[in-house]
Design a protein around this nucleic acid. Structure first.
Lengths: 94, 94
DNA sequence: TCATTATTTCGCAAAATTACGAAATAATAT
DNA sequence: ATATTATTTCGTAATTTTGCGAAATAATGA
């Protein structure tokens, strides 16, 4: 869980994740580069890290690479965080 | 949110947070040092960072310092994360 | 084949994080 | 006052992260 939190702990990576969380959302490096002021190589590194962590996956689509959420792993992360937050919630309610 | 995720992105800090999430839980540096194999100064730094981020607060209690969750901020973080996870959940359910 | 477009890897520098031991602080007890 | 206990700050070293530009790769189109 700390690993996942760490990956989410960078504004660029969190931005990308938040985009991809939406239904069937996907993004492209060349697309993101217009929204974020960062060099292409740096963006590429962040995408690589997100991919390596298992939170997203990339698929070649013509000359582009289409990135989207890895739904299975995202569900896992969601559960890990919710477990921690729910412990708190269960205790606070009395 | 990235800031909070970053703070949670270290195993020692996450460990401490998970302890404190339980009802009225608190901890002491000298207490934690027996559970985590890390030097006192390093532990102190992590506590400082947690405090600086607003996730925990410390209170002097005799010769000890009692740390506990900052409930207000924890609730904020919980909401921030839940919002992101809920977006996903709302979309996936159809 | 050669040029073009999209994107990544490489090499490297700057900055931030992590970790430690020694010294400092702060409260209590003798 | 002095010693003891709990904990933090300071100085510093090692490691990791972040970021960039240049070169490399890979697919498409002329």
């Amino acid at each position: 869980m700390a690993q996942f939190a760490k990956v989410m702990g960078h504004p660029v990576r969190l931005y990308i994740l938040q985009k991809l969380v939406k239904k069937n959302a996907c993004c492209y490096s060349g697309n993101l580069i217009n929204e974020i002021s960062i060099s292409r190589s740096t963006l590429s590194q962040h995408l690589k890290e997100l991919k390596y962590s298992g939170l997203i996956e990339g698929e070649i689509e013509g000359p582009y690479i289409k990135y989207c959420l890895n739904k299975e792993n995202w569900a896992k992360v969601k559960m890990l965080f919710e477990k921690v937050f729910d412990i708190y919630e269960n205790y606070i309610e009395d």
